[in-house]
Nucleic acid binder design. Sequence first.
RNA 1: GCCGGGGUGGCGAAACUGGCAGACGCAGGGGACUUAAAAUCCCCAGGGUUCACACCCGUGCGGGUUCGAAUCCCGCCCCCGGCACCA
Length: 838
Amino acid sequence: MEQEREDGYSPGSVEAKWQERWDARRTNRFTSEALRSAENPYYNLMMFPYPSAEGLHVGNIYAFTGADVHGRYQRLTGRTVFEPIGFDAFGIHSENFALKQGVNPMDLTPRNVANFTRQLRRIGGMFDWDHTVNTSDPAYYRWTQWVFVQLFRAGLAERKEAPVNWCPSCMTVLANEQVIAGLCERCDTPVEQRRIAQWFFRITDYAQRLLDNLKIIDWSETTLKAQENWIGRSEGAILHFPVLPHTREDRGGHAPPAVDSKDVGEQPPVLSVFTTRPDTVFGATYMVLAPEHPLVDAITTPAHRARVQAYQRTAAKLDLVARQKADKTKTGESTGAYCLNPATGEPIPVWIADYVLLEYGTGAIMAVPGHDQRDFEFARIFGLPIRRVVAGPDQNADTALEEAYAGEGALVNSERFNGLPWREGARAIVEWLEQRELAEAQVNYRLHDWCISRQRYWGPPIPIIHCDACGPVPVPEADLPVVLPRVEDFKPDESGVSPLARLKEWYRTTCPRCSREARRETDVSDTFLDSSWYFLRYPSTDRDDAPLDPEITRRWLPVDCYIGGEEHAVLHLLYARFITMALHDMGYLGFQEPFPRFRKHGLIIRDGAKMSKSKGNVIVPDPIIEEYGADTFRLYLMFLGPFAEGGDYRDEGIQGPFGFLHRLHDTVVTAAARDDGSLPPDPEVERKLHKTIKQVSEQLPNLQYHTAIAAMMEYLNSVRAGGRKPVRAEVEPLVVLVAPFAPHLAEELWERLGHPASIFTGASWPGFDPAKAAAETVRIAVQVNGKLRGTVEVPLDTSQPQVETLARAQENVSRHLEGVGLRRVVFVPNRLLNFVVG
RNA sequence: GCCGGGGUGGCGAAACUGGCAGACGCAGGGGACUUAAAAUCCCCAGGGUUCACACCCGUGCGGGUUCGAAUCCCGCCCCCGGCACCA
C-alpha cells in the first residue's frame, strides 16, 4: 500500500506516468543509426545480473541505482549516454536451482528474465531495452561460440589433460578462480583433483600484459591489488639438478652414492626446480617432488617403490582443503634417489611430499631448510641437514637456526659468493650456473590457464567436432550456433562428461574437414565466457550477421565507466580483459582494455549483519517500492553511506529521504503556484544554492552520492527555513540536481514548472558562480593556546588586526589573555585566530 | 605470514591542504496542531561538572611533531577484504 500524505505527492502514479512516457517517447533508446552518429557518446556499464528465481536482490538495485545515477548525471551534462542491461542467464547457478525445483532451465529462465525485466523497469533505470542481451539466447551464444572458435584458430584454446578442480557436488570441473580456499565457490564443497582432458584458454600467455596494463587503467585500488595478487608474478630462476644413477647399495641400503663419474649414465634425467631464491642454492640439502610429479616413478629406487606408491595413493585421496593447510604437519616419503646440487656438487636426497604442488613452478623444489620455514619443518621431522647460507645483520655463518631465516643478509657458507648481499648473490649465482647450463633466469606466474570446460547442461556447447582423423575441428562459423538441445534428463553425474554425452543422436555428426563420422564435443563452456564479452555485444545487438558492428564499436567502446561488485575482481574482470586483448590481437578491436575506468560499489548489510536467507534479514524490494516509490528507495540506498563502501540498511531510515522528497514536491509546487518567474531569490538562499550546486557537481562524478544528497537536504532546509515562501529561481536548479536520484519526481516537477520536454533532454546541469558560492561572511574560530574560546562573525577576507580587535573585545577571550604574556598570534584568513600565551 | 582498506555520538555517517569534531539523516526527548491518534511543523540532543556564565574530557590504545592533530610520524590492538605449504 502506498503511503499517502496531504501534499499531493503520490509516488505510485507519478512513477507509472513517467515510465510510460519514457517508453512511449523512447527517451532512453537508440536506433542503430542513432548509435552510429551519436555525438559525445558515453557508455555507462553496470554488471549484468544473473536472473535468479528470487528476483532482484537489494544488492543488485543498489549497484544499478548507483550506476544509473552516474548515467543520468552524465546525460544532464550533455553526454549521449548508452546504458544497457542484460541477463547472465546461463550457468551452474541457474541450473542447480532448476534441478532443485525439478523444472527445465529452458522453461525457468524466461520466467525469471521476465520478472527481472519488470523489476528493473520499476526502479526507473535509464536502460535501453532495445539493446539487451540474454546469454542463454542462441542469438547471443552463437557469438560466444564464435569467440571460442576465434581463440581456437589463434592457438589460444587447447585441449589438454591436466589436474583440474572437480567439485563432487556440482559434478563438474571448475576454473581455479572458482575455487575459494579449496572450496567450490557455488556450494562450498571441498574440491578434488582429477585428471580429465579439458579445454583451456591460454590466459597465461597474457599474464605479463594483464599485469602491466594495471598501471594504465583507472580502477579502484583494491581491485587492482586483487588482480595483481591473482596474477602473482615472481622473479627467480629455473635450476637443474642432475639425478644420480642408483648405486648398488641403493637396492638395499641407505648410504648416499659416491660421486664418481663412471657411475653417471650417459643421459641422466634432470630435475628442474623454480626458485625465487637462487642465492640460497648452497643451502639446498634435499629436494622434494610433488607426489604426482611425472618423474617420480622413473627415479624411485626399487627399495622405496612400495612406500612411495602408498604415499602417492594417500595424497591423491586428499581434497584441496585438507592438503593446502599450511599448518598441517609435514608428511613425505624418500624416493631413495639422489641429485647433484649444481652449486656444491654434493649428492642430496630426493623426497616426495604433498606440500609441494604440481601446478606451481615445475612441481619440484630444491629444499633450503635454513631459509624456508616449510622446508625447515620438513627437515626437522625427517632429520635432514639444515645449513645456513644467509646471515642477517646480527648473525654469522655459524649462528644457530631455531627457525628458517627468511630475512635479508649476506651470503655465507657459499664458497666464492660469501659476503655478497643476497640479491646480488642471486644474480651472480644464476650467471655462474647459466654458464654451465645448469640454470636460467625465469619469471613465474601464479595465474593458471583458464579451464573453460564444464560437464554440465546449462551452457553453450563448445563448438568443436572431434574427428579420429583430423583431431578437434572447430564448427564452421556458418553452422553456428551449435544449439543446446532441450533435454529432460539434464542431471549431471559422476562420469566426468556432460549430460549431452547421453544424446547419441545429438553428438553424432560428420567431420567438417574430412566428412567422416565424428563426434561433437559434449561439454559446455564456463559461464564466465558468456560474460567475458557481453559489453561488446550490447551496442551491436541489431546485427545478426556479425558479433560486432565495427562502426558502432569504434564509436562506443571501450566502456567509459564500469560499475560493479568486487566479488568479480579476479573472475569476470580478468577474463573480460583477457578476451578483449585476444580479440584486439586478432584485429577485431582497436583497444586492449575494455574498462579504462572501473569503480567498485560496496555491500549493503542490514542492521549490522550480512543479509542471508538463513538469518531471515533479506530485504524484499517490491513491497518497499510499492509503499514508498522507486525514487525514495533509490535516494535512500544512495544516502546510506559512501557508494564504494556500501551501507547499513535500517528499515526506519527510509523516512528521511521519503520526507525530503515530499517537502521537495511541496516546495516546488508552492513556488510554481505563487511565482511566474519574476520574483528574485533571497540573496542568502541564492548563495547557499550556488554552494550546493558546487558541492553536488564536484561530488557526483566521484560517486560521492551520500554527501551530495546531504547537501541537497541542507539546501532545501534553508529554502524552507522559518516557513518562508520559496520562489522559482530557488527551486528550479534543485530539481535538476535531484533528477539523477529521483528521476520520476524530477520529471513531474519539471513539468509542473512549465517545461514541456523531459528534464533529461530539456534541462542542462546548472552552473554555479564561484563568487556567489563563496560566503559573504565567515565565522572565525578564536583560540587561546589552541583551545576554542569564542568565534567572531566577520565579512570574508577581513584582515588580522580587525579580527584580533573583535576577538579581544570578547569577554571570554580577554579573560584568558589577562595576566599572561602573549608570545605570538597565529592567523589563518577566514578560518582561525590563535593567541599563543604563557 | 604477505598485500590492501578501515576503527569518530545510541545508529548510518561528515570534516577541503593540519585550523570551530559530529554536517545530513535515523532512532530518542520536548513542544505546536488535534476530542484523540497518525501525518505535518518547530525546538533540544557527544560525555561530564554547573541554577547559570562557564569549565573539563572526548575521533581504537601508547608515545611524538606542531601555536594547533580524527588528519602527519613511531610503536601496538582490533575489524573487513585479497593472496597463501606459490617455492
